[in-house]
Each structure stands twice: as C-alpha cells, then as structure tokens.
Amino acid sequence: MNKELIINKTMEYVKSKLEGEGTGHDYFHILRVYKTAIYICEKEGADLFVVGLTALLHDIADWKFNDGNSDIGPRLTRKWLGDLGVDDFIINKINMIIKTMSFKGGTTNSKQETIEGKVVQDADRLDAIGAIGIARAFAYGGYKQRELYNPNIKPQKYKDFDQYKVSVDTTVNHFYEKLLLLKDLMNTQSGKTMAEERHKFMMTYLNHFFKEWDCIETN
C-alpha cells in the first residue's frame, strides 16, 4: 500500500474515532495539528510520512480519557499501522513519539530525540496556545467541571504524574501551569516563531480577564 493511501486511510480512521468529540481533542484538533506539523516538517527537513502518521494518531486514545492509561494509544496505533503493512521500524518510531509527547503537568520526560518527534510535539503544543488554545482550555475545563477561576486556589507545581491526575484546579490556573510555559518549550525554530504571537495573545486575554473579574474598565 502506498504512503498516500496509508495517510488517507488513517485520516478516515481517526475521523471515525474522534468526530464530534466535545472537549477540544476532536477530529478538527487532529487536522490542525496535522496541517501545522506538515508545515513545520517541510521547513525543518523531517520525514513527511512519519510526521503525518504521528500527527494523525497522537490522540487516538488520549490518557486523559482512559483513566490515565498511556498505553492504549500506542497499542491501537501499532495494530492499525500493522494491519496497513507499515514497517515495524516506522511503527516503533511513531509510538516512541506518541508515548513521550504529552506535557502531563510537566512531571514526566517529554523530551523528543528525533526531528519528527520535535515537529509533531511543536504542532500539538501550538494548538494548545493562542485563541484556539484558550477555547480548548475552557472546553476541557467544562468537561472536567472545573471552576473558571477561583482566587483562593493557586497554581501548583506538581511533584509527579499521579498528583497531576487527581488535582483540583481551575481553568485559569492551567494557563500558568502549562499554557504560558509552552512558548519556551518549543523544539524547532519554526515552532518558536509561531508560538510568539499566540503567547502574546494569551497574555492579552488574561489581562482583560482579570480586569473584568475585578470589574475594572478595560477601555
């Protein structure tokens, strides 16, 4: 099976799994990450086939929706790509990226060793910041029944992944615990450049948020 057909079939597979999902981890999130990853890939000289498949499959079974289990996604990925006849070396490379891609409260090692991993991780993190990142943060916060903001609950620095999984938090705190940190965690020059504007937009948003929270005129 040729590479283009494998990509197209994988896109259809992911759509069947994630279409209509309401927390910001839906099929359109995958498409945005895919398009951004392809854009960065072409600038950074990474393997287009590996980048494309990894971007499409990186959230096929996100740990956040599987009781913290990080192994389901790689297992589904291996079966899907194996059935399509993808070489084991490529499958292993893709799974290694997927296993180590997530931020997870900054409590686990998410450093990417390959240029393909760096490209896809940057693309995924770019979708977590800026205007869409803000929308996704509040969509997921609603799903988790989190308060928008509570001045009595301060941002945390988590000791480990288990603490992160069970934390009681607010969506605004999530900006300080993750989203505002991502600009400085970009791997590629392309990712760093794209992150700058999105980071500035989040800072502007938070400035307005706190003015409105304190009933201060914003004009």
Rank of each mutant, 00 (worst) to 15 (best):
N152Q: 12
S110A: 13
S70G: 00
D162Y: 05
T107Q: 14
A123Q: 03
Q145V: 10
M186C: 13
I129F: 00
S167I: 02
V86H: 08
V168S: 11
W80H: 15
S70H: 09
Y149P: 01
L148K: 08
F175Q: 09
Q156V: 13
D127L: 07
Y176M: 02
L179H: 14
Y140K: 14
K93D: 08
A137V: 10
F65D: 10
W63F: 13
F65N: 05
D71W: 02
F89Q: 13
D83M: 03
D83R: 06
Q189M: 12
V120W: 01
F175T: 13
K93S: 13
P151M: 02
S70I: 14
V120D: 01
I91C: 07
K79E: 15
K118H: 04
D160L: 11
T108F: 02
F103M: 08
T107S: 11
D71N: 13
R78Y: 05
G117Y: 00
L148Y: 12
K159A: 12
L148T: 14
M96Y: 12
L81R: 10
P74C: 05
L76W: 02
L179Y: 03
I115V: 13
Y140L: 14
I115N: 06
Y143R: 12
K159G: 08
T100F: 00
N69V: 06
E177Q: 09
S167P: 00
N95K: 06
T100C: 07
F161Q: 11
S110I: 03
D83A: 10
W80E: 12
D162P: 00
N92K: 10
N92Q: 05
T108Y: 01
K165G: 00
D88R: 09
N152Y: 12
V166S: 11
T77Q: 13
Q121L: 05
Q112L: 06
I60D: 03
D122Q: 06
A137N: 12
D122G: 07
N150M: 02
Y164K: 06
Q145N: 15
G68S: 10
R78A: 11
K154A: 09
F161A: 08
I115S: 02
I97M: 10
D124A: 06
L81Q: 09
Y158F: 15
D83H: 04
Q156N: 11
A128C: 14
D87E: 15
T170Q: 08
L180A: 12
R136W: 03
S102M: 10
A139F: 04
